[in-house]
Amino acid sequence: MEEGDRRSREEGSSRYTLQPSRICNEDILFCIDIDPQSLVEMKTATGHNGRPLTRLDSIKQSILLFVHSKLAINPDHRFAFATLSNTVSWLKKDFSSDVESTMAAMRGLSATNISTQPDLTNLFRLAAHEAKKSRAQGRILRVILFYCRSNVRPQHQWPVNQKLYTLDVMYLHDKPGPENCPQEVYDTLVEALEHVSEYEGYILESGQGLARVVFRHVLILLSHPQQRCIQENIDIPKSLAKKAPQGEPMATEENAPVSTQ
């Protein structure tokens, strides 16, 4: 009898054992849209010289926040940078864990003054190539694309059909209007993300023009592709939202919590 109990206990315990899995260090390639629409002004924010804060300014700051945060979690993650105008070009090709090199890349980042049809084909080609190099070192590649155009859907072909890396997208856009089609752009980006992503890729968007919303979204992207939940599960369930203390609205885009320290 005792032996039977022991066996069933052992079976029971083995049934709930988590399989150990190796979480790889990340190589993260940021691709930043430098179309003139990246110079659209954010709301309520101006610098001391009176110059308004632009989308590109908030992207730079959010990347810096991301890199600092990611390195605080694990100092072995690495970062490289590319830009998107009509096609994708390297801004800083060598992956590095050095915050100073991120700062230098951000300083060297500026928008173009002509608007062109963007093509992501080269991004996917570069990413596939870099992903193979990362894999050879026991690492995984992630691409984080910041896209700023409300009226132009990015084009792309699929140079590689394997899913070798994960694509995350942060989409900053204007409100829908006669000149704009942010929903169609969003759908195109989702299609691209689903086509190339090895793990769960996230797409986050903001049409409000609030820098702190950009920061909050970018901090969601800190989650490691091998550990993250599916995107639908990120949002706080309505049932929990109702339980928020009186007079304390849950975090929405308008009152997004950002650490003050």
């Binding site: 309520t44 924010a45 101006t46 610098g47 001391h48 010289n49 110059r51 804060l53 300014d57 730079k60 700051q61 810096l64 926040l65 600092h68 700062m103 951000m106 300083r107 820098a211 702190r212 920061f215 950002v258 003050t260 320290q261």
Partner: peptide, 22 residues
């Protein structure tokens, strides 16, 4: 604040990328 837009910047958000007051 004097640093950046002065609305939200603190610690790593207050950095050389943003303008500071003179």
């Amino acid at each position: 604040g004097c640093c950046g837009t002065g609305l939200l910047e603190v610690s790593i958000l207050c950095n050389p990328l943003g303008d500071s007051c003179s």
